[in-house]
């Protein structure tokens, strides 16, 4: 995922822009990047079905591995289910998140924004390397 696309999705997640604005920005970004990106992304677009999380780590000298494969359809269904969470529960969750040092206002997250995030997950690859652990999050 490019830095610009990530910025757009961050703004969408933060509620600074609407889903339509994000879509327009991403479309404009794709128009600009299409000629340059041709041939770089070998993954067939629109065919990804799963979100994969792979963690390789060493814990007390023993190798450990977590390999999770979640259907993207499950994420979409989860977003629809999360949209049904009552506002009073969201307020409590906000307070708990804030206490934990994660100041996110869940009431500002709209289902369509989350849907847009899930839609664009196929472009995402996150790799974190540290001396004793490697984390990869990608779609396939």
């Amino acid at each position: 995922m490019t830095e610009q696309r990530k910025d757009i999705l961050d703004m969408l997640a933060a509620g600074k822009i609407t889903a339509e604005e994000a879509e327009q920005l991403i479309a404009a970004l794709e128009r600009d990047q299409a000629p340059a990106a041709a041939g770089l992304d070998a993954r067939p677009k629109g065919k990804v079905k799963y979100l994969r999380v792979v963690v390789d780590a060493t814990d007390n000298g023993e190798p450990s591995r977590v390999n999770v494969r979640v259907p993207l359809q499950l994420l979409r269904a989860g977003v629809r289910l999360a949209a049904l969470v009552p506002p009073q529960a969201l307020v409590k969750a906000n307070a708990s998140l804030s206490d934990s040092g994660v100041p996110i206002d869940l009431t500002q997250l709209k289902p369509e924004q989350l849907e847009a995030l899930v839609e664009h997950l196929d472009d995402m690859t996150v790799e974190v390397d540290s001396p004793d652990a490697t984390v990869r999050v990608f779609c396939e």
């Binding site: 079905k49 814990d59 591995r65 977590v66 390999n67 259907p71 359809q73 269904a77 289910l81």
Partner: peptide, 15 residues
Amino acid sequence: RVISALPGARFDIEQ
């Protein structure tokens, strides 16, 4: 929908 979307999910943990 959540239940219907479960097929294909896989959780593999090794320690």
